[in-house]
Measured scan of single mutants.
Amino acid sequence: MTEYKLVVVGAGGVGKSALTIQLIQNHFVDEYDPTIEDSYRKQVVIDGETCLLDILDTAGQEEYSAMRDQYMRTGEGFLCVFAINNTKSFEDIHHYREQIKRVKDSEDVPMVLVGNKCDLPSRTVDTKQAQDLARSYGIPFIETSAKTRQGVDDAFYTLVREIRKHKEKMSKDGKKKKKKSKTKCVIM
């Protein structure tokens, strides 16, 4: 069974824990209790493949930012979460993405942009803004509501699919490099 290491990042209060708990335990946590770091595991079937999701729910508070490099190193894919009623959390996505790329030393890291709290009427981040940002990053965008469960499975499952595509691409690139290195030079 394939294991996928997913990391949920975003500013404090955007609903990272609520999304994760909704996926794992099928219930909505409405009281806000700032996370330092929590880890969850769940076995699911995605596109006919049974897999184990190892999900790291991270601290959004700035005082825990020193811990970010460590979990970013171990993560295979990242859910970059903002709240649709919090423009600052949307603007912060850029910083999370840049930090992930720096730590992973790669421009090509599996990510999904997630606009959470889409059940709320007080939207300050337009869907088109988020779609445009995701398009500019070359990553999928999904709106979710941890409260109603809308888009929750889709967000995590899409990230797994992005990781699969990335692994497939990397193995193809690896095979191309191996083929090239088999060419021999004969000096007579």
Score class of each variant (00 low, 15 high):
residue 63 E to Y: 06
residue 63 E to H: 07
residue 63 E to C: 07
residue 64 Y to N: 02
residue 64 Y to G: 00
residue 64 Y to C: 02
residue 65 S to F: 06
residue 67 M to F: 05
residue 68 R to V: 01
residue 68 R to T: 04
residue 69 D to A: 04
residue 70 Q to D: 15
residue 70 Q to S: 08
residue 71 Y to G: 02
residue 71 Y to D: 02
residue 72 M to E: 02
residue 72 M to F: 03
residue 73 R to Q: 12
residue 73 R to P: 06
residue 74 T to Y: 12
residue 74 T to V: 10
residue 74 T to I: 10
residue 75 G to I: 03
residue 75 G to S: 07
residue 75 G to T: 05
residue 75 G to D: 00
residue 75 G to N: 07
residue 75 G to W: 05
residue 76 E to F: 09
residue 76 E to R: 05
residue 77 G to K: 00
residue 77 G to L: 12
residue 77 G to D: 00
residue 78 F to D: 01
residue 78 F to H: 00
residue 79 L to P: 02
residue 79 L to D: 01
residue 79 L to K: 00
residue 79 L to R: 00
residue 80 C to S: 04
residue 80 C to H: 05
residue 80 C to A: 05
residue 81 V to H: 05
residue 81 V to K: 03
residue 81 V to A: 07
residue 82 F to A: 15
residue 82 F to I: 11
residue 82 F to Y: 13
residue 82 F to P: 00
residue 82 F to M: 13
residue 82 F to S: 14
residue 82 F to L: 11
residue 82 F to H: 10
residue 83 A to N: 15
residue 83 A to E: 15
residue 83 A to V: 03
residue 83 A to W: 03
residue 84 I to S: 15
residue 84 I to N: 15
residue 84 I to L: 15
residue 84 I to W: 14
residue 84 I to Y: 15
residue 86 N to A: 06
residue 86 N to D: 15
residue 87 T to A: 15
residue 88 K to G: 10
residue 88 K to Q: 13
residue 88 K to R: 10
residue 88 K to S: 13
residue 89 S to L: 04
residue 90 F to S: 10
residue 90 F to W: 14
residue 90 F to G: 07
residue 91 E to G: 07
residue 92 D to C: 05
residue 93 I to R: 02
residue 94 H to T: 10
residue 94 H to I: 13
residue 95 H to S: 11
residue 95 H to F: 05
residue 95 H to K: 14
residue 96 Y to G: 02
residue 96 Y to R: 04
residue 97 R to E: 08
residue 97 R to C: 15
residue 97 R to G: 08
residue 98 E to L: 03
residue 98 E to N: 08
residue 98 E to S: 06
residue 98 E to F: 02
residue 98 E to H: 04
residue 100 I to G: 01
residue 100 I to V: 06
residue 100 I to F: 06
residue 101 K to P: 02
residue 101 K to I: 09
residue 102 R to T: 09
residue 103 V to G: 04
residue 104 K to G: 06
residue 104 K to I: 09
residue 104 K to H: 11
residue 104 K to C: 12
residue 105 D to R: 10
residue 105 D to N: 14
residue 106 S to N: 13
residue 106 S to T: 14
residue 106 S to I: 11
residue 107 E to L: 12
residue 107 E to M: 14
residue 107 E to R: 10
residue 108 D to T: 08
residue 108 D to W: 07
residue 109 V to H: 03
residue 109 V to Q: 03
residue 109 V to I: 12
residue 110 P to W: 02
residue 111 M to K: 03
residue 111 M to F: 11
residue 111 M to W: 04
residue 113 L to A: 05
residue 113 L to M: 09
residue 113 L to K: 00
residue 113 L to C: 07
residue 114 V to T: 02
residue 114 V to R: 00
residue 114 V to P: 00
residue 115 G to Q: 07
residue 115 G to A: 14
residue 115 G to R: 05
residue 115 G to D: 04
residue 116 N to P: 01
residue 116 N to L: 15
residue 117 K to M: 15
residue 117 K to W: 15
residue 118 C to G: 11
residue 118 C to S: 11
residue 118 C to E: 08
residue 119 D to P: 04
residue 119 D to A: 06
residue 119 D to W: 03
residue 120 L to G: 14
residue 120 L to S: 13
residue 120 L to F: 14
residue 120 L to K: 11
residue 120 L to T: 11
residue 121 P to K: 09
residue 121 P to N: 14
residue 122 S to N: 13
residue 122 S to H: 12
residue 123 R to L: 11
residue 124 T to R: 09
residue 124 T to A: 13
residue 125 V to T: 11
residue 125 V to R: 11
residue 125 V to E: 14
residue 126 D to I: 08
residue 126 D to H: 09
residue 126 D to M: 09
